[in-house]
């Protein structure tokens, strides 16, 4: 079954390989609470500030864990994309061989 052409499937292949590598790594870095990624946490920019440091750490830790899982889920989605575009690439290369 052919859905996308050779160029789109190649593009999907490259982006998903890149995505899997980067998102898995980013997930690990979020999981170990890397400071470099602390700017992109959900919830830490809240309006009223925080009552106490413990409060802040609670929110930040939750954000780290959530982002780690988000990254890993997105990486899984890219594995799915990789499989689809790999299949499409295979189909395309076979059909061009037949011609």
């Amino acid at each position: 079954m052919k859905i996308c052409g050779p160029k789109l499937s190649l593009c999907g292949l490259i982006i998903s390989v890149w995505g899997i590598f980067q998102l898995v790594l980013m997930g690990i870095f979020y999981y170990v609470k890397s400071i470099a990624l602390s700017e992109d946490l959900p919830g830490v920019e809240s309006e009223g500030g925080f009552e106490s440091p413990e409060d802040f750490y609670k929110i930040a830790d939750r954000g780290y864990i959530q982002n780690a899982y988000n990254c890993w889920i997105a990486a899984c989605l890219y594995i799915f994309t990789l499989v689809i575009s790999g299949h499409q690439f295979y189909v395309n290369s076979r059909s061009s061989m037949n011609m």
């Binding site: 992109d40 959530q66 982002n67 990254c71 889920i73 989605l77």
Partner: peptide, 30 residues
């Protein structure tokens, strides 16, 4: 960043929304 700072609810729905948003935005960013 938009994909990473999406939602802070912590329930199952926010994981689904957050990861799909990340999936799409990552492709755009790449």
């Amino acid at each position: 960043s938009i994909g990473l700072t999406g939602s802070a609810d912590g329930d199952a729905q926010s994981y689904v929304v957050g990861s799909i948003l990340l999936y799409v935005l990552f492709a755009a960013w790449a």
